[in-house]
Simulated assay, not measured.
Amino acid sequence: MTVTSDDAELAGALATAAGELLLKLRADSSLTGKELGNAGDLQSNEFLLAELARLRPGDAVLSEESADDLVRLDADRVWIIDPVDGTKEYGISDHTDWAVHVALWERERDGTSGGLTAGAVALPALAVTYTTDGVPIAPANGLASVPRGDAPRVVVSGSRPPAFSDAVAAAIGGEVLAMGSAGAKAMAVVRGEADAYVHAGGQYEWDSAAPVAVAKSQGLWCSRTDGLALEYNQRDVYLPDLVICRPELAEAILEITRRG
């Protein structure tokens, strides 16, 4: 990989390259299931850490697969990465709903706050990477795996769907669709395959940072289920809930999710 001054471009290149590594591992090794997922996490993490150390040596990194020494709390630039988002899905050969997340958090000039300034979500099995580069939202069904009708779609976790999933779908006259990784669900909204993604419980900063960065760059609504802002590079990285949706649906969805 070559040095680039553009952080969004770098995020995209890193996520794409890590995804290619993961596809090769899945195709060439005899590993399956959890063993494949563990090997993928390790190799992708090692690659991303090495490239960030080489290309952005002054930046800190928060990774799902590395110990957090909290040095990042004093840093002005922090990369937040998930080497394999959807490890379970990655370990199943015919699943495409897994991702690689690379996001950048930067401190504001006043030094008191910060936010996501660049990010990328690679969906390697679909051969596509979404970045915070301002590309317009793709037409519905551009990469849809399931044909859709006219009803709005709310994507949720297949293993841990929120208790309010059906109520959210009813509020917007839609239907619920289960899908794998957070990145896959968020990008389904970005490309128009779905209209909203809601989640409650069991996520951390690396699960949503890159998806939220990309979704925000596309003009989508992103918040916690109570409507408050999603904050990153916090001491406690547990960030269990979120709403990503088309802006016109936010009010109706939050009216439900605020109740828990």
Rank of each mutant, 00 (worst) to 15 (best):
M1G: 09
S5L: 14
A8P: 07
G12M: 00
G12R: 06
A13E: 15
A13S: 14
L14P: 05
A15V: 00
T16D: 14
T16N: 13
T16C: 08
A18T: 13
E20G: 15
E20A: 12
L22A: 12
L25Q: 13
A27M: 03
S29M: 05
S29P: 11
T32C: 10
E35S: 13
N38Y: 10
N38G: 10
G40C: 06
G40N: 03
D41Y: 01
N45E: 15
E46M: 04
F47D: 03
L49N: 06
A53V: 05
R54Q: 09
R54T: 14
R54N: 10
P57A: 09
G58P: 06
L62H: 02
S66N: 12
A67N: 09
L73T: 08
D74I: 06
A75E: 13
A75L: 04
D76M: 06
V78N: 05
V78S: 01
P83Q: 10
P83D: 10
K88V: 08
K88E: 13
Y90D: 12
I92D: 12
D94F: 08
W98F: 13
A103K: 06
G114A: 10
L116V: 07
A118R: 10
V121L: 07
P124I: 02
Y130F: 15
Y130V: 03
T132F: 02
T132C: 10
D133E: 11
V135T: 14
A138Q: 08
N141Q: 14
G142P: 01
G142A: 04
L143K: 11
A144P: 02
S145D: 09
P147T: 01
V156M: 03
S159A: 10
R160Y: 14
P161E: 00
V168T: 02
G173P: 11
G173S: 13
A178W: 05
G192N: 04
E193C: 03
A194K: 02
D195K: 00
A196D: 07
H199E: 07
H199Q: 13
G201Q: 10
Q203G: 14
A210V: 11
A215V: 07
Q218N: 13
W221M: 07
S223L: 06
S223P: 08
T225Q: 12
G227I: 04
A229V: 09
A229M: 06
A229G: 13
Q234S: 01
R235L: 13
D236M: 08
Y238F: 14
D241M: 02
C245P: 01
P247L: 03
I253Q: 02
E255T: 15
T257W: 06
T257Y: 03
